[in-house]
């Protein structure tokens, strides 16, 4: 059985907000390592890989690996019934056909209990190969969100150019063009805002802004984001959390 108690229930609410528009149904794979989820969007353009490590929960118990098939829209609706400061406990039996959720307020004088029906999801499990990327950009997650949103005014795609000087996000559309360049600035006072680049080779790739904007729904989960790129390989956008991560993979646009 699974029993996982999360002190900061808001984390789970934010995680659901960050994935529910990309994928509708997914298996939460529970093991002694923690709770993981991996799913592609319907058009096979993007993939979400989520890990909530066991040490992020207190307590965390999972005697036997379990796949909990969840409709993410339903789960996020139920999670809206939890207060932001509530402690959230997830429970499921080995023969689980429901996921039990308990929300306790911080005064421990209001306890709400919900049960969400589970579904059988026959999902193909994909192995994501370890890739050495030609360019890795680490930057402020809020800045990345702003750039994607701003450039969406001009176009539905963005060209990302990475050199050792900096990273340039450019968009061209019917009303004109725009570009935002962030210079590499590792020695700024505010570490949170620094743009850092690890580069093997200059990279220039095109991506759909609609998907990138969707990925930035994870911004409340981490102050930093990393963009890992190589030619003709899916972009990896990673938000690291205290005990886990959300990784998004996005196939590039090809052939200008």
């Amino acid at each position: 059985m699974l029993e996982a108690r999360l002190q900061t229930g808001a984390l789970l609410k934010k995680v659901l907000e960050a994935i529910k528009e990309l994928i509708t149904d997914a298996n939460f794979d529970c093991s002694d390592n923690g709770i993981a989820l991996q799913a592609m969007d319907n058009s096979h353009v993007a993939l979400v890989a989520l890990l909530l490590r066991h040490d992020g929960f207190e307590p965390y118990r999972c005697d036997r690996s379990l796949a909990l098939g969840v409709n993410l829209v339903s789960l996020s609706k139920v999670l809206r019934c939890a207060g932001n400061d509530d402690i959230i406990t997830l429970k499921a039996d080995d023969t689980a056909d429901v996921l039990s959720l308990t929300f306790e307020n911080t005064d421990n004088d209001r306890i709400s209990e919900y049960e969400l029906k589970l579904m059988d999801i026959d999902s193909e499990h994909l192995g994501i190969p370890d890739t050495t990327y030609e360019a890795v950009v680490q930057m402020s997650s809020a800045e990345f969100a702003r750039i994607c949103k701003d450039l969406q005014v001009l176009s539905d795609s963005v060209q990302i150019d990475v050199t050792k000087e900096g990273v340039k996000f450019g968009a061209k559309g019917e009303l004109g063009s725009g570009a935002v360049t962030l210079k590499q600035n590792g020695n700024v006072d505010k570490e949170e805002e620094a743009t850092l680049i690890e580069l093997q080779q200059n990279v220039s790739l095109n991506f759909s802004l609609k998907y990138l904007v969707n990925f930035t729904k994870a911004t409340p989960l981490a102050s930093r984001v990393s963009l890992s790129m190589s030619s003709e390989v899916p972009l990896l956008v990673e938000y690291k959390m205290e005990a886990g991560y959300i990784r998004y993979y996005l196939a590039p646009k090809i052939g200008e």
Partner: peptide, 14 residues
């Protein structure tokens, strides 16, 4: 204009 690529083929089935 560029066409949107797909992820199929990048990741292996396990």
């Amino acid at each position: 204009t560029a066409t949107q690529g797909r992820l199929d083929g990048f990741f292996t089935m396990t």
